[in-house]
Design a protein around this nucleic acid. Sequence first.
DNA 1: GATGAATGAGGATTCATTCAT
DNA 2: GATGAATGAATCCTCATTCAT
Lengths: 205, 205, 205, 205
Amino acid sequence: MHEGGHVAEQRGRAARRAELISATRRVARRSGIGGTNVRAVAAEASVSTGSVLYYFPSFDELMYATVEGVLEEMYEHRRMIAESEPDPATRLVALIVAGVPDEISDHLRMAYESIPLLRERPEYRPLHRSIVERQVALYRSTIEIGAATGAFRPTTDLTTIARNIVALEDAYDLYPLIGLEHGAETYRENILSYARIALDCDLTR
Amino acid sequence: MHEGGHVAEQRGRAARRAELISATRRVARRSGIGGTNVRAVAAEASVSTGSVLYYFPSFDELMYATVEGVLEEMYEHRRMIAESEPDPATRLVALIVAGVPDEISDHLRMAYESIPLLRERPEYRPLHRSIVERQVALYRSTIEIGAATGAFRPTTDLTTIARNIVALEDAYDLYPLIGLEHGAETYRENILSYARIALDCDLTR
Amino acid sequence: MHEGGHVAEQRGRAARRAELISATRRVARRSGIGGTNVRAVAAEASVSTGSVLYYFPSFDELMYATVEGVLEEMYEHRRMIAESEPDPATRLVALIVAGVPDEISDHLRMAYESIPLLRERPEYRPLHRSIVERQVALYRSTIEIGAATGAFRPTTDLTTIARNIVALEDAYDLYPLIGLEHGAETYRENILSYARIALDCDLTR
Amino acid sequence: MHEGGHVAEQRGRAARRAELISATRRVARRSGIGGTNVRAVAAEASVSTGSVLYYFPSFDELMYATVEGVLEEMYEHRRMIAESEPDPATRLVALIVAGVPDEISDHLRMAYESIPLLRERPEYRPLHRSIVERQVALYRSTIEIGAATGAFRPTTDLTTIARNIVALEDAYDLYPLIGLEHGAETYRENILSYARIALDCDLTR
DNA sequence: GATGAATGAGGATTCATTCAT
DNA sequence: GATGAATGAATCCTCATTCAT
């Protein structure tokens, strides 16, 4: 009927879904994943509850897409930090600083709040896993470059170091959520203290 | 007549509560915290739903008591490991081995699943925080002893090292939950690799 | 197609709420306020319990709206009697006759049954108070007109007389509820006997 | 077995019941009839919930006995006022003053809160009815004496006057409960204003 | 006599989902 | 395409009553 009608509709559909995901994110930020429901999302997006489930087969799928988006964005942010900084030492510090934010980020909060979803929805696992793995890759390649240029002199296998740094980040990101507030600065220094001895380098900031 | 007659009852309120907590634990292990409700707990304990709320002022309180018990037990287990091993190096290794179990423990699962509860129930925060702090203390005192005996030659401040070890443990405990299965052995080695350079020691197993 | 198709729905939210209020009234008439609950109302209105709470934020609000409606209707009925009768003496008698019905009216029953609600729901107070006050105003203005035309020769302050008449009505409405059955006629005559001496007039019927 | 055992037991039983009634009264004063339940009464009386229903066949019966006691006490109080004052005019004023207390009395509150119980428990009706009737009798005999002594010159039949006074009292006792606070003094004056013209007398205070 | 543990029906409320329009 | 009214199962919690002791 309409020229290119389907294409336009498809575009419209994608845009609608994006809006709903965005609304879900805002609700989840405000009220937590547990406090996020169809009605709240519909209200936030100024659409009907019927619309929400018209664009997503179920509320679970919308939540999945939302968590996915948040995690991807979180990773993307760190990847851009890595790309914009050529010097491996500086990049490493920048990554760690970005990895342990001063304020609990919504990204992190949602990442941790989505853990209970894993039990009944195994499809969440690849999401989380992949984020960790790509962060490890980010650190690993940074270290590799530094090792190649002589900036770092790794004391052990690179993957181990990269994994440890990411693990430290993950734990130190969790702590503020459970009320352990030693401050992002302390946590960053803890991670840097590890990086220095593991890479036998200076890492001034 | 009376003697022995009231055995079940005389175990008393505390025992009944303990049974309910235990039932809650089993349900939570099976179905997750999100899948745990009054009816399921009542069925698991073979009592009426009324009974559950007879022994606990609210379901939330039962859940809190359950999480508290699980976390305490987890810490207690590690404390006993520490106490039963006098040699600091051996103790450190034992703690790390116990801290990264081969199978995902219910303790850890519940610890992580209870994170979303933190948002609406701030009373959970001291629970989680305290467990982390006491674990750090456990490692710190172990390191201190080792430093005193010359077994360890710490390269930096003891609290930092202890915190980093606990943080690594916490993250490596989380990973299997999200499908990252490099194996407990790998994770333990990663932590040990840190401990070795941070404490400048051998730590054979 | 559309036109007329949505009749039931297009009557709209307000109409649905009115239906539920009406159902609540029927249940309350049959079973008392204490015997009125969501399920009974839903059954009476032939809808699901979910529907009841879809149109009212809480059952309390539905009950409030119902009591409010009943009280307003009661007042409105008396106001119309007053308006339709120009002669102050005839109007006064008509008001008293309407004010003490032969049968215990649902209005009165609900008015008195809602008294215990006042303790926990202070928002009911303005409702009751306002009805009494407006009834007093109705009598007062009637008396005022009669005094102006010379039909009444009030022996004391008009508000006092109006209040006393309403008070007598309120009490005599209560008595049949507690089993004091001297008959509406006797009660009306008692009130009229007061009106006659207080207004120094005849008040034949 | 025990000498007079049964008698003593009967006395004990009556005393226990009295204590429970008294406890029920205190709870009802605090929390309203709707907020009064077996557990609260048991706690207030420092006995077990089982005890409460050991001494009363059902909670309803305990509540009935409590309301009965309160209403009787209320009447008894007024009767004593009447008895202690020989002069009919002074007695009348004293009765009216006592009948419209400055503060909402627990007696009145319970009298009005018990109205909804009438629907399902017809046995409450004689209670309320009898209180009204005896109050009317109190006023009627007072008026009769005054008429005999020439202190009062009733303008109409004595029962009508007595009933109207009691009705006014009942309504003016209700008003503070629904938030109509013109003050006890105003209400008393309103009643006295009626008494004066109905009895054609002075009634100074 | 007295207890209090245990019950289970019944209370209001929440919410993803369905479907007629 | 999009709506939003309607559902009903599931949630936690309350409470008079029972009964073994």
